[in-house]
Design a protein around this nucleic acid. Structure first.
Length: 639
RNA sequence: GCUGCCGUGGCUCAGCAGGUAGAGCAACGCACUCGUAAUGCGUAGGUCACCAGUUCAAUUCUGGUCGGUAGCUCCA
């Protein structure tokens, strides 16, 4: 979370008329401001907003975040109470609210199954009907421990024992059910009327895989049945755009048992991937990058030198060749270092920006794999920037702007996180402090709001991560900017400075798409498979009314191909309605229907996937429209 | 990797209280030659993920392996 000092309270009226008392802190002298909390009508809420270039704050979203937290947290207590009523021997662990609902971790020998949900739900509904009041009370530490020991709740006892000696320990009581809890809570159990338990899964006590695995029951509640219906509807809609489902249906990629985590790209998927790379190369060339390529496999010595062997050898693929160990690269940086070392560098050449579309392999845990989002072989749009210390801030800003521009092309929203020094870091503290403060300063000068993840940095340096939002509210790390003082040292990189002496350059690792596979997965979901015209694997489908017009259709196809438009033709002996239906399901942006009328008038009847039939025009006319969309990379997805 | 659930033709799924399987879509063939989201008829396609065990008999029961999946853990 953002660390705040000196909160400044003010009343602000937003464009939509919402009045809110907000706590605002300027995190630098510039424009960067961050709203961390606000209250509205006496309720604590969360706000999301954007700072415009003129310094005015534009209201984006009003979300009763805290209110939902309380609502769902109380719901989790109701869940726990219901479970204790049915299985009195269940031991309670923790039960917080989450972004969408809540869960409760319990230790119970009986294995819960989906069929138990109905029983638990109806018990919860009973508790809601009883409208039990939630009463808060406090106990000194020792008494609190004794209290929970008597209740035979070992997990609660452990939690209390971890609290400081002088801590005031609070409990919440509803009817005969009492739970250790800091609160706050609803006044009574009567509000969460619409209840749905969602799933059950294993979870380690305190998130540590060495601890016992508990049963975690997920649920969600609402005040009104209609809200629950809407939520379920939303989940179902989101499932329809799951990239794994669409990837199969639209023949973009597939997975095989022969290569778990190694995606196969089909012709249509590759069209999109290539289009992304084409865009990427344009952007990077303009930004002064050069492109290189380094080997897929390099000697183990190199990975020992880089420090990756020590940190990640269990996740690296290795192979023995001529009695020597080789590692399939899990990262591109050592290769990049070697390219740098291949020649002498002057301070005048800096910054040097060497980009690489690098295929990397990492042996991720089997349980972590998830479609294209988490794979074992992926393509990074990597780049290493070598520079002078005084260039750091500007270069970080350049990269952040480049990433921002690229994401905007796709209409993505994102948030930024800054990850700082981990426990198993390399190098000395002084360099780390400098690296972290450079990243912070760059972010602040850019006016970007960010979250700090203490101790979450890479072993060689702190990093700024860009997280994209997907269609069901999850976020995925894509872009990253990592500052690195270590690799240049380990690989003994040098440049000749103005003083004629040799110096050590500073390096940035960065990716914009991150993993092209992951980015592609998010794209599929973002557009629900209906890609903007410039990205569509098939941009036009020519549909002859009957096979009498196949020749004319072929002529139209050739005309479009001459313009480099991706075009397919459907000459099957099917009815036009059927051909249109299939082209619609393939989400092709343009369908050209051709029959007698068109063949005679040398034209095509254009159908857009969203608008339907838009009338007849010449091939040249419609081609110009399409070519312009491709050229400007217009986001014309109907999503 | 851990826990739960799942694994039947290319896809979506049905079936089997144990007697070696069925539908729709897709594919292929024939007829129809059609004007903006599914023309009709026919054909072919599966050692029911894999390996053991129980049994006269296993796709069905049991165990293991592999893979998928929801979470947990991890994510350079």
């Amino acid at each position: 979370m953002i660390k705040l000092t000196l909160p400044d309270m003010s009343i602000r009226e937003y464009e939509n008329g919402t009045k809110a008392i907000e706590v605002v802190k300027s995190i630098s002298e510039g424009l960067a401001r961050s709203v961390v909390g606000a209250s509205f009508n006496g309720k604590t809420i969360g706000l999301q907003e954007q700072i415009n270039e003129d310094g005015n704050i534009k209201f984006l979203k009003f979300e009763d975040k805290e209110g939902k937290d309380v609502f769902w947290h109380t719901s989790s207590h109701i869940l726990a109470q219901a479970i204790k009523r049915i299985w009195p021997e269940a031991k309670l662990a923790i039960g917080p609210s989450i972004d969408n609902g809540f869960y409760y971790d319990i230790d119970l020998d009986y294995r819960l199954v989906q069929e138990d949900f109905e029983k638990i739900e109806s018990e919860m509904k009973k508790i809601v009907k009883e409208g039990l009041e939630l009463e808060r009370f406090e106990l000194p530490r020792e008494e609190a421990i004794k209290f929970m020991e008597e209740k035979e709740e070992p997990y609660k006892v452990e939690l209390i024992k971890d609290l400081p000696a002088d801590a005031i320990i609070s409990f919440y009581k509803q009817g005969d059910f009492v739970d250790l809890c800091a609160g706050p809570h609803l006044e009574s159990t009567k509000k969460p009327k619409a209840i749905k338990l969602l799933s059950i899964a294993g979870a380690y006590w305190r998130g540590n895989e060495k601890n016992k695995m508990l049963q975690r029951v997920y649920g969600i509640t609402f005040e009104k049945a209609k809200e629950l219906e809407e939520y379920i509807h939303m989940i179902e809609e989101a499932k329809k755009r799951d990239h794994r489902k669409l990837g199969k249906e639209l023949e973009l990629f597939f997975m095989s048992e022969e290569g778990p985590g190694f995606p196969f790209f089909l012709p249509k998927g590759i069209e999109i991937k290539n289009e992304l790379l084409k865009y990427w190369r344009e952007v990077h060339k303009k930004a002064g990058y050069v492109e290189i390529e380094t080997p897929l496999m390099l000697s183990r010595h190199l990975w020992e030198n880089s420090g990756h062997w020590d940190h990640y050898k269990d996740n690296m693929y290795t192979v023995k060749i001529d009695e020597e160990d080789f590692c399939v690269k899990p990262m591109n940086c050592p290769g990049g270092m070697m390219v740098y070392k291949n020649s002498m560098h002057s301070y005048k050449d800096f910054p040097i920006k060497a980009a690489e579309i690098g295929r990397v392999h990492r042996h991720e845990l089997s349980g972590a794999l998830h479609g294209l989002m988490r794979v074992r072989a992926f393509t990074q749009d990597d780049a290493h920037i070598f520079m002078l210390p005084e260039q750091i801030k500007d270069e970080i800003k350049n990269v952040a702007n480049l990433i921002d521009g690229m994401y905007k092309t796709f209409g993505f929203t994102y948030h930024v996180e800054l990850s700082t020094r981990p426990e198993d870091f390399l190098g000395d503290l002084k360099d780390w402090d400098m690296a972290e403060s450079s990243l912070k300063e760059a972010l602040e000068e850019l006016g970007l709001n960010y979250i700090i993840n203490e101790g979450d940095g890479a072993f060689y340096g702190p990093k700024i991560d860009f997280h994209l939002n997907d269609c069901i509210g999850r976020t995925w790390q894509c872009g990253t900017i990592q500052l690195d003082y270590q690799m240049p040292q380990r690989f003994d990189l040098e440049y000749v400075g103005a003083d004629g002496q040799k110096h050590r350059p500073i390096m940035i690792h960065r990716v914009a798409f991150g993993s092209i596979e992951r980015f592609f997965g998010i794209l599929i979901e973002q557009f629900a498979g209906a890609f903007p015209t410039w990205l569509s694997p098939v941009q036009v489908k020519v549909l002859p009314i009957s096979d009498k017009f196949n020749d004319y259709a072929k002529k139209v196809k050739e005309e479009l191909e001459a313009f480099n438009i991706r075009v397919e033709i459907d000459t099957r002996a099917e009815k036009i309605g059927y051909k249109i239906r299939e082209a619609q399901l393939e989400k092709v942006p343009y369908m050209f229907v051709v029959g007698e009328k068109e063949a005679e008038g040398n034209s095509v009847s254009v159908r857009e996937r969203q608008k339907g039939d838009i009338g007849s025009m010449s091939t040249k006319e419609i081609s110009d429209i399409i070519l312009n969309k491709i050229k400007t990379r217009e986001n014309d997805s109907p999503q």
